[in-house]
């Protein structure tokens, strides 16, 4: 195969040149084809389809009716539970996202200077809850609503409470508890990315920093460490935010569906309710589009903020 560079010649238009490049790199298209076909089919088309379907009334059986903005109007003006869901989702994301992100960063930074063996062990301790599947159900056992649950039992025994607290079945406790569990399972991909980012920093940068008058480890963190690992901070932020919006399953498994008084009802549950249970596909697509916009929007916002680190 000839690998001569195609140069833009004056007698070629841009379109002709592009076409020539495409033909020259045929093999590249064959290589990306299987991945891109599957990706398009199960990621790109579903997003586009959601947007289209969100303007219709569709129940999977009958032909969809075009209803323009009706679904969105109903969603924002007529659906009280959606408003609760929005509020809960935002509270959830605003606490879990940054908490998990900062905890990942802090722990990664703390353990960075430990000897490799110890570092590997600590990494395992912090990382394993996020990979152990439904192991978070143990929180349901610890905080079970009868007196055999460890927390209730201990509190009763110490005389701090006189009656069992119904933790995951009590509207005032369920949300904070779910947030704690979500944080517990959230030290995942971004955590590993931070560990790797810290390991990759050239040690001579710190020595140069010390000469230039960096006084303590906090200054070192802000002026040297964080700016050097900005690409990882970016990637970690995206992973943390996306995960922070995806904890619906944890809530359902621990608090049931729907949660007591909708106290831990998130947009994701609302989506499940209308899409998976009531088959109002048009309406649930509108919910999905809103959630999609919130996710992309918050990612963009955080990317902007992170570009200011260390400056």
């Amino acid at each position: 195969m000839s690998k001569k560079k195609a140069v833009i010649r004056s007698d070629m238009t841009k379109a002709q040149w592009t076409w020539k490049e495409i033909k020259r790199n045929k093999v590249a298209y064959f290589m990306v084809a299987p991945y891109m076909i599957i990706f398009t089919l199960f990621t790109v088309i579903p997003v586009l389809l959601s947007i289209v379907v969100s303007f219709t009334d569709f129940n999977l059986l009958e032909v969809p009716d075009f209803v323009f903005l009706d679904n969105y109007i109903r969603l924002f003006l007529d659906d009280d539970i959606f408003v609760i869901a929005c509020k809960n989702t935002l509270i959830f994301a605003i606490i879990v996202g940054p908490a998990s992100y900062l905890m990942s960063l802090l722990v990664a930074w703390f353990i960075n200077e430990l000897p490799p063996k110890i570092r590997a062990a600590v990494t395992l301790v912090f990382y394993s809850p996020s990979i152990s599947g439904q192991v978070y159900l143990i929180w349901g056992t610890l905080f079970s609503s009868d007196s055999y649950g460890w927390v209730n039992g201990t509190l009763l025994n110490l005389g701090l409470i006189t009656k069992e607290i119904h933790w995951f079945k009590d509207a005032s406790y369920v949300m904070p508890l779910c947030i704690v569990v979500a944080i517990w399972t959230s030290l995942g991909t971004s955590f590993l990315s931070f560990i790797a980012g810290l390991q990759g920093i050239d040690h001579s940068m710190y020595e140069a920093g010390a000469v230039d008058g960096v006084k303590n480890r906090w200054q070192e963190l802000w002026y040297i460490t964080l700016p050097s690992m900005r690409p990882q901070l970016m990637f970690g932020a995206i992973m943390s935010i996306t995960a922070a919006f995806g904890f619906g399953g944890v809530v359902t498994d621990l608090a049931g569906f729907p949660s007591v008084d909708y106290a831990a009802h998130t947009i994701m549950h609302h989506l499940d309710d209308y899409g998976g249970i009531r088959f109002e596909v048009g309406y649930s697509s509108a919910i999905a589009v809103v959630l999609f916009a919130i996710m992309i929007g918050s990612n963009m916002l955080v990317k902007k903020m992170l570009s200011k680190v260390g400056s």
Binding site: V44, I241, M268, V281, M295, I296
Partner: peptide, 21 residues
């Protein structure tokens, strides 16, 4: 870039339309 953007949203968003497909 398209693939990278898709890191920004959780797959549950597309669960229902994926079901149609």
């Amino acid at each position: 870039k398209t693939v990278r953007t898709s890191l920004m949203f959780h797959s549950t968003v597309t669960a229902i339309t994926s079901f149609i497909i």
